[in-house]
């Protein structure tokens, strides 16, 4: 390698003077690190944490016919102490005492749980089919699952109105082939909400399950078969347990947002199915009762904190 003539040029060469000087210079404490941390940090504190603290504060305030429609306000520092004394848990007692809110919470959690299960029942075979498809198809299939996720949520929910309404496409189809004679009432019922949630959140369930199945070593199944396990049994004893992590992740990804969903129950569920997301919306926009809307929101967060924390623990452990 190389010729002797080069020896002195490269071999005996030592670090340049500039570098020796550089080596003696203490590590510079650039502005870069503090800026990279502080800018997003302050943004999140200012536009996420502080607003949420304001929600908590307003949830402890009283409704007032004013702008903003609540008191007390912490405008003048000299009145802070008296303002502080006006804060109370009245709104929470109000929520606890009114069956309407209780029912809305229970209904939201029940609908979210049921539609999570339904989503799983559809997503698992889909993800499984994708993972067993010829490798050449898989990129395309994956893209086809992701594509609806990129298109507007609102549009996808809207598309179902035309299908589900009494004179809609589903009823037209079913009546024309003679399965039913009177149109089914689906729109504005919980069934429509289920369909909407399953449809909208299907990619959230399919992708983590597919990711788990795709990662799985196919030789495990071959090993199970080799050891005498028939395919169905191999599925339940090997494949399914190994895909559980994806299943759990998918369930959380569907359940948590579904519980606070507004658009789907509003457009598909009609006025009689009152979920909690819509309750917040109504309290705020229709009743203009900001303190109660805030209290309802705070309670919803308190309920969702449990699954959120479990989910993050699980993700942290897996990652």
């Amino acid at each position: 390698m190389g010729e002797p003539g080069r020896k002195t040029e490269i071999g005996s060469g030592r670090q340049g003077d500039a570098e020796v000087r550089a080596a003696r210079r203490p590590a510079s404490r650039g502005l870069f690190r503090p800026v990279v941390i502080a800018v997003p940090y302050l943004w999140l504190v200012g536009l996420f944490l502080v607003p949420f603290l304001i929600v908590i504060k307003i949830s402890l305030s009283q409704t007032a016919v004013a702008m903003p429609p609540y008191r007390p306000t912490f405008g003048d520092p000299s009145t802070w102490w008296s303002a502080l004394q006006q804060l109370s848990f009245d709104n929470y007692l109000w929520i606890a005492g009114d069956e309407l809110y209780f029912n809305a919470y229970v209904l939201s959690l029940a609908i979210a749980a049921a539609s999570t299960l339904l989503t799983l029942l559809i997503a698992y075979p889909l993800a499984y089919g994708m993972s067993k498809a010829p490798p050449a198809w898989r990129t395309t299939l994956l893209m086809l699952v992701i594509l609806p996720f990129w298109t507007s949520f609102l549009i996808r929910v809207y598309a179902w109105i035309a299908i589900l309404k009494p004179e809609g496409l589903l009823n037209q189809l079913l009546m024309s082939i003679g399965v039913i004679h009177d149109p089914l009432v689906i729109l504005n019922t919980p069934v429509a909400i289920f369909i909407g949630i399953v449809y909208s959140y299907l990619p959230f369930m399919t992708l983590p399950i597919y990711a788990g199945l795709d990662r799985m070593d196919h030789s495990l199944i071959e090993a199970a078969a080799d050891l005498g396990s028939p395919p169905l049994k191999a599925f339940w004893t090997i494949t399914f347990p190994l895909s559980l992590r994806g299943v759990v992740a998918g369930c959380f990804l569907v359940f948590i947002p579904a519980a606070g969903e507004f658009v789907i129950p509003d457009l598909l569920g009609g006025s009689r199915t009152l979920m909690i997301g819509k309750t917040v919306w109504l309290e705020f926009f229709t009743n203009r009762d900001w303190p109660v809307a805030s209290a309802v929101a705070v309670v919803l967060v308190a309920i969702l904190v449990v699954p959120i924390v479990i989910f993050q623990r699980q993700q942290a452990r897996a990652g």
Binding site: V45, G260, A293
Partner: peptide, 20 residues
Amino acid sequence: MVYAPLVMPEVITGLSLLLF
């Protein structure tokens, strides 16, 4: 603060920002 907004119901994020 990075992860919470991902799963926070939109009505709550919207409400809190408006109140802010």
